[in-house]
């Protein structure tokens, strides 16, 4: 398995690079647009003729990028923590057989999975408001604090934990909570990583819900801020929009780049296996 011919390696990189072109297209496009100066046309040609960072400083001036990123990260962090914790707890319960009402709970959960957000948005807003959480980041986070999807991801992972491991723990006299934290959680690291990513992305990407909840622009998340930059009926500068998007994206990519090795290392030890 570890034999690699130079030709094989070259082929591998060729494929990797080919995929790169396909996948990176829009980001590279935005990057190039963001480097175009005000003297040249945004619409002609791909490459900037006289690259400039001016657009980035313009964005920085008019736009509290760091505050927005900060707000977004708060929501993301809350979402990641709550999802990892609550979804694994709930997923654990769902994965254990033989308790009353399991089928009902399961059906209810499946039922709620599938609703177009627009049709439940207003009633969600009324609830959040009645809790006094309108215009707060907590209000943005709360409805997504445990997503049903993540419950199912964790449930699938726990189902796959070999029975012998659990039985051994029971024989050792471990309580339910101990079995959960010492046996099950460690063997579901891979699934936890996936939950981390899905909940982070969910919080990062969300636009309509934060818009409904937040009114004070100091509380705005990044997506809201970026939307304010882009194509209004009065001003429309693709360079600025691109610069804002890239500036917002770079930290994300860096984070992912730095974390991915841990992710996949940790994943290797965990098990979502059969």
């Amino acid at each position: 398995m570890n034999r690699t011919t130079p030709a094989g390696l070259a082929g591998r990189y060729l494929t990797l690079c080919l995929m790169l072109v396909v996948m990176l297209g829009p980001i590279v496009w935005q990057l190039l647009t963001s480097l175009k100066s005000r003297q040249e046309s945004v619409y002609d040609g791909l490459l900037p003729s006289s690259p400039t960072l001016e657009n980035y400083s313009r964005v920085a001036e008019s736009f509290p990028l760091f505050a927005y990123v900060g707000n977004t990260l708060v929501v993301c962090a809350l979402a990641v923590v709550s999802n990892c914790l609550f979804a694994s707890m709930g997923g654990y319960a769902l994965s254990r057989a033989g308790w009353r009402g399991r089928q009902v709970v399961f059906t209810v959960l499946v039922a709620t999975l599938m609703f177009p957000f627009e049709s439940v948005m207003i009633s969600m807003f009324l609830t959040v408001r009645s809790m006094g959480l309108a215009d707060t980041l907590v209000g943005v986070w709360l409805p997504g604090a445990v997503s049903v999807l993540n419950l199912f991801i964790m449930r699938a992972a726990f189902l796959a934990v070999p029975r012998e491991m659990e039985e051994a723990a029971v024989l050792d006299g471990a309580s339910e909570w101990q079995r959960f934290t010492r046996v099950f959680l460690p063997s579901a690291k891979g699934a936890l990583a996936v939950v981390c990513i899905t909940s982070f992305m969910g919080a990062w990407d969300d636009f309509l819900w934060p818009l409904i909840v937040l009114t004070n622009s100091e509380n705005y998340t990044l997506q809201l801020g970026l939307k304010a930059l882009s194509g209004s009926s009065l001003v429309n500068d693709p360079r600025l929009v691109a610069a804002g998007a890239i500036a917002a994206l770079l930290p994300m990519m860096l984070l992912f780049f730095c974390l991915q090795r841990y992710f996949f290392k940790g994943v290797g030890e965990g098990s979502i296996k059969t």
Partner: peptide
């Protein structure tokens, strides 16, 4: 926690 959230918001 999960169920409470789901009941309220879904």
């Amino acid at each position: 926690p999960g169920l409470a959230m789901v009941l309220t918001f879904s």
